[in-house]
Simulated scan of single mutants.
Amino acid sequence: MQRLPVSEVWGIASRLERRLAGYGVTSVWDLATVDAAQIRKWFNVVMQRTALELRGVAVIGPEEDRTGKKDQLIVSRSFSEKVTTVSGIRQALSVYAQQAATRLVKHSQVARSLTAFAGTSHWHEQKHYPSARVRLPFPTADPVELTRAAHQLLPQIQDGTRYARAGLMLTDLLPADTHLSLELFRASHEDASIATLIDAVQKKTGGREVIGLGYGGLRPGPSWTMKRGMLTPRATTHWDELATVRA
Rank of each mutant, 00 (worst) to 15 (best):
T147F: 01
Y163C: 05
G88N: 11
S121F: 14
A92K: 02
A195N: 00
T171I: 07
Q156V: 03
Q38T: 11
T232D: 09
H107R: 08
W29S: 14
R228T: 04
Q158S: 08
W29Q: 15
S108L: 09
F138D: 09
L31S: 08
S188Q: 06
D35S: 14
T244F: 11
T244L: 11
Q158W: 11
A101D: 00
W42V: 13
V6K: 00
I74V: 11
V245K: 09
P155Q: 01
G217A: 07
A92W: 00
P175T: 03
L136Y: 00
G68N: 08
G11Y: 04
R186S: 06
S80L: 04
A32K: 14
G212M: 08
K203N: 06
A200S: 03
T171K: 05
V9Q: 06
D30A: 12
R77V: 04
Q38G: 09
G119A: 15
E209T: 10
G206H: 01
A247K: 14
V95F: 02
Q91P: 00
S7C: 02
L136N: 01
Q158R: 08
F138E: 06
R162G: 08
L184C: 10
R3W: 09
F79G: 05
S131D: 10
E145K: 00
F43K: 09
S27G: 13
I89C: 03
F138P: 01
S181C: 05
H128W: 09
V75F: 01
A176H: 07
R148M: 02
G212A: 08
W42E: 13
A235T: 11
A132G: 01
E81Q: 10
S131Y: 09
Q72Y: 05
I39F: 13
Y23Q: 14
R19F: 12
F117C: 12
E209H: 11
S121A: 15
E63C: 15
R208T: 10
R208E: 13
V34Q: 07
F185T: 12
M47L: 13
Y163D: 01
E145M: 04
V210A: 08
T236C: 13
G216L: 06
E63S: 15
L218H: 02
G68L: 03
S193W: 02
R90Q: 10
K82I: 11
R165A: 11
T232P: 06
V95R: 03
L73E: 03
G56K: 04
S193I: 02
L173R: 10
T85M: 05
Y129T: 13
S78L: 07
Q48K: 12
Q152M: 02
R3S: 12
V144L: 13
L4A: 15
G229K: 03
F79P: 04
G24N: 15
R103D: 05
G24M: 15
I89Y: 04
V46T: 06
R234W: 07
R103C: 05
L174S: 14
L114C: 03
A166S: 09
V83W: 11
F185M: 12
A243Q: 14
T50R: 00
R112F: 05
P222H: 02
M169N: 02
G229C: 07
